[in-house]
Computed example of a mutant assay.
Amino acid sequence: MTSPPAPAPTGSEPPRASEPSGPSGPAEPVGDARVTAADRALLEVARAEGGARVPDDGSVIVIHREPAGDAGEFAWMPDDQNYCLAVVRAARASTTCNPLPKSWARIGIRLVIEAVAYREGPTVYFAVVDGGHAPYAYAGRGPQSPGRGPVRDATAAFASGRTLSLLTYERPSGQILPGDREICSADNAVCFPTLDVYVPGSP
């Protein structure tokens, strides 16, 4: 079961302008984010276990897949203002569908939430970032703290030419780790703190 998002951080910048209105059509996956035959098991688990109406029109965006085919995260966006995320682990699925916030506190960052919090094991975080600045990774050098998984990302493209980066990463829920650092795009155009959680629909 998906845990409720954490409260928005205090003392952040004022919300920035919202995105342009109007329909944009469904997003399409770019490159390795396209569904392959090996991903069918993930989709079926989400349909059966998560109760989700996973589309079958090529609009599913695979963010992360394990070689064994029994774990991963994928999303779909009917337009550029709404998303659905499915997280699959060990033949169990959790699916969340929500609108993106109308405004946000940090330029370029549309959403950061705790997607799924497990009783045992790390929490899966999900972020939506403007533009296609992949790949994303933890900023800075040095060893990675135990309990913090790699950053995975995929690109969602709309017919208008607009792109969004969809990211997932795992870490202990709400816990600051030694040497904690931001997640940044490869060109350092976009960075955000790993626990900078925004509540959908917040002003």
Rank of each mutant, 00 (worst) to 15 (best):
P203T: 05
V151H: 00
V45M: 04
A86P: 09
T36W: 08
D57W: 05
V190N: 03
T123P: 03
G69V: 02
L166E: 09
V151N: 00
P135I: 08
E73N: 09
G72Q: 03
A8G: 14
V197D: 10
H133N: 05
P67Q: 06
A6T: 12
Y138V: 06
P122I: 05
Q144N: 08
E49H: 14
G149S: 01
F126N: 00
G31K: 07
T123F: 08
Y118A: 12
A75Q: 03
C184P: 02
E114Q: 12
D56M: 13
L166M: 11
V112L: 14
F158E: 06
A46M: 04
G149H: 00
G149V: 01
A91Q: 14
L177D: 08
S24A: 10
T36M: 13
P20T: 09
A186W: 03
P200W: 04
V197G: 02
V87D: 13
P178F: 07
T10M: 15
P101I: 01
W76V: 08
A117N: 11
T155R: 12
S103A: 15
D39C: 09
P122A: 10
I176E: 12
E44W: 06
V199E: 15
D180R: 06
R119M: 13
R162K: 14
E44R: 13
P172F: 01
A156C: 08
S160I: 01
F158P: 05
P20E: 13
A86T: 15
H64I: 10
A105G: 15
A52Y: 05
L177P: 10
D56K: 13
P203L: 06
T95A: 14
S202E: 11
P5I: 06
C84A: 14
A8T: 14
V199W: 07
E13I: 03
A156V: 03
G50E: 05
R65P: 02
A186F: 06
P150G: 02
H133M: 08
L167H: 04
A127F: 01
S145L: 03
A75K: 02
D180N: 11
R106P: 09
A86N: 11
D56G: 12
C84T: 15
R119F: 15
G121I: 05
H133D: 12
G121A: 08
P99N: 10
V112M: 02
A91W: 11
A159K: 11
E170I: 03
W104V: 14
L164H: 10
S12W: 11
G132V: 03
D57M: 07
A37E: 10
D32Q: 13
V60D: 07
A33W: 01
E182R: 12
P99Q: 07
L100I: 01
R119P: 13
D196W: 09
R47H: 07
S21P: 11
E73G: 12
P9L: 07
E44I: 06
V190T: 07
F74S: 03
E44C: 09
A189C: 05
D196T: 08
L164M: 12
R162M: 09
A91S: 15
T155D: 09
F192D: 00
S3I: 13
A105I: 12
I113N: 00
S24D: 07
R89D: 06
P67W: 02
V128P: 00
T2L: 15
A33K: 04
R34W: 04
P172D: 01
L43H: 08
D79T: 08
A134R: 11
C184T: 02
A117G: 09
P101M: 05
D56C: 08
G108W: 01
P193I: 01
